[in-house]
């Protein structure tokens, strides 16, 4: 901790948020392993992307504000950025999976895959 002792009002919420963020992210990524199909797996990592990221960035905000001694809000930028961008990736991947399943089915001479 580079020798700086943080006041309790910053250390306790930051520690709680860090633990919550770690648990949420690891559960979300566990979904990548445990869920059965690709379309179900899409939902796992979005836990880490939303609340996991949010908790982590608030913890980071508490700690850096307490170190510098004034409100430091630039972590907020990452939150906004992740919240705005991760749905774009998820939507494109969902459409790619449907498109690929469909073109695979038609090229094999079957009917179009039931969504």
């Amino acid at each position: 901790m580079s020798g700086v002792e943080l006041p309790l009002w910053a250390a306790v919420p930051a520690a709680l948020l860090l633990v919550a963020s770690g648990l949420l992210t690891v559960t979300g990524s566990l979904g990548l392993l445990r869920l059965p199909s690709f379309q179900a797996r899409m939902h796992g990592p979005s836990m880490g992307n939303t609340l996991g990221c949010g908790c982590m960035l608030f913890a980071s905000m508490f700690v850096s504000s307490a170190i510098v001694g004034r409100p430091v809000l630039h972590e907020f930028l990452i939150t906004v950025f992740v919240v705005v961008t991760s749905p774009a990736t998820a939507m494109l991947l969902m459409r790619a999976s449907i498109y690929r399943a469909r073109s695979k089915a038609t090229s094999a001479g079957n009917e179009v895959v039931e969504r």
């Binding site: 939902h43 796992g44 939303t50 919240v83 749905p87 939507m91």
Partner: peptide
Amino acid sequence: TSTPGTVW
């Protein structure tokens, strides 16, 4: 999409 459990 950012709500876990639903994707557009």
